[in-house]
């Protein structure tokens, strides 16, 4: 059949070749659950090292959350939506288009929001009454 599955994943951790697609899916589920559990535990305990230190205007903890979210998104798209098994041209068209557009949108809107925040804070503008 035309449904050849690439069964070698987790290459960052040395790689693991699964004997069937079904087994691979259960491992991906385990991995996604683990990542979610880590997020929830960090969210409940909020270690001070991560909330007191900032990187590019955002708490380290929030950076960790966003990075872990992107990791989860990668595995959902690559294994559940089987982008891993699609032709690279299709995969690139699907993935890079939103990444490119959304990065721009994020940059421009958050930058503007920070500008408005400063107006509220430093401008002669009353809002807390």
């Amino acid at each position: 059949m035309a449904h050849a599955h690439k069964l070698r994943i987790f290459r960052w951790a040395g790689g693991k070749t699964f004997k069937s697609n079904t087994v691979k899916i259960w491992w991906v589920l385990g991995f996604l659950s683990l990542v979610t559990a880590v997020e929830v535990i960090l969210g409940i305990f909020k270690p001070e090292v991560l909330t007191k230190n900032y990187f590019v205007g955002m708490k380290l903890l929030n950076w960790i959350f966003i990075i872990l979210t992107l990791v989860k998104a990668y595995y959902i798209a690559w294994d559940f939506m089987h982008l891993r098994d699609e032709k690279s041209a299709l995969r690139r068209a699907i993935v890079w288009t939103p990444i490119f557009l959304v990065s721009y949108l994020v940059f421009i809107l958050l930058y503007e929001a920070d500008y408005i925040y400063n107006i509220f804070k430093n401008g002669f503008f009353a809002w807390d009454f």
Binding site: P98, V102, L105, V106, L109, L110, E112, A113, I116, K121
Partner: peptide
């Protein structure tokens, strides 16, 4: 892209009232 638009506008409002 639609959802991104919504979530980014949420981020906009949040950064605007970050404190």
């Amino acid at each position: 892209l639609t959802f991104s638009g919504f979530l980014v506008s949420y981020g906009f409002s949040r950064f605007k009232f970050i404190e």
